[in-house]
């Protein structure tokens, strides 16, 4: 896949969700300025924002974009990468806004705050994407996985004090989440 369709899909998806992304960033700034220091606040808020961004990619929210993407000559994995990148950008912007706002009050009180927060946010977003193209029990199951992944990353960083362990866990799980999403998109019959 060349970068052109990738960028076109990411830009179109972000443009379609621009209002929601702006609202989430503003909310992150507000919460970041008011929340007490600690890792729970930013992780919980930003992971939930990431999950919400991923769910906003559910088929049917922007049927016109869905149809263009599904009828375009792109492989499932290519489509998955592009479609996964858009909510990740939104989630990362939210997390950066939160951390930036928290910095005005002295930060969140955790060393290496940016990688510690950003990696589980991206992981949660990617796992939640698998829920976005499913319905019923499988959707709930993937949402549960997304929350569990965020909780596991938090445990590694805050309880086990292993930043490298958290980063490694997030990288591995995110890789499998994107693969799974690509496989699911390749098999997906969009009606």
């Amino acid at each position: 896949m060349t970068s052109r369709p990738f960028l076109a899909i990411v830009a179109a998806r972000l443009y379609a969700e621009l209002g929601a992304v702006e609202f989430t960033i503003l909310a992150a700034v507000l919460v970041g300025m008011l929340a007490t220091p600690g890792l729970v606040g930013p992780l919980a808020f930003c992971c939930l924002a990431g999950i919400a961004s991923a769910m906003a990619q559910s088929p049917g929210r922007h049927p016109h974009l869905d149809l263009c993407e599904q009828s375009a000559p792109l492989f499932g994995r290519e489509l998955a990468r592009a479609k996964a990148f858009a909510p990740c950008v939104a989630a990362v912007c939210t997390a950066v806004a939160y951390l930036g706002a928290a910095q005005t009050r002295g930060g969140i009180g955790t060393p290496f705050a940016a990688p510690v927060v950003l990696s589980p946010v991206i992981l949660c977003t990617l796992v939640a994407l698998c829920a976005a193209i499913r319905t019923g029990v499988p959707r709930l199951l993937y949402l549960g996985f997304a929350i569990a992944a965020g909780a596991a990353a938090y445990s590694l960083a805050a309880l086990a004090h292993s930043v490298w362990g958290e980063l490694l866990f997030c990288a591995l799980a995110a890789f499998f989440a994107v693969r799974q999403y690509g496989e699911a998109l390749a098999r997906y019959d969009y009606i």
């Binding site: 052109r4 369709p5 179109a12 016109h64 263009c68």
Partner: peptide, 25 residues
């Protein structure tokens, strides 16, 4: 070509064409 009308205005035309052109390379 889908049955459902696309939620697009006349002013969206160049942006829409660029998007489709990018997807079809």
């Amino acid at each position: 070509v889908a049955h459902e009308p696309a939620m697009l205005q006349e002013t969206d035309f160049p942006r829409y064409v660029r998007y489709r052109a990018a997807l079809w390379n």
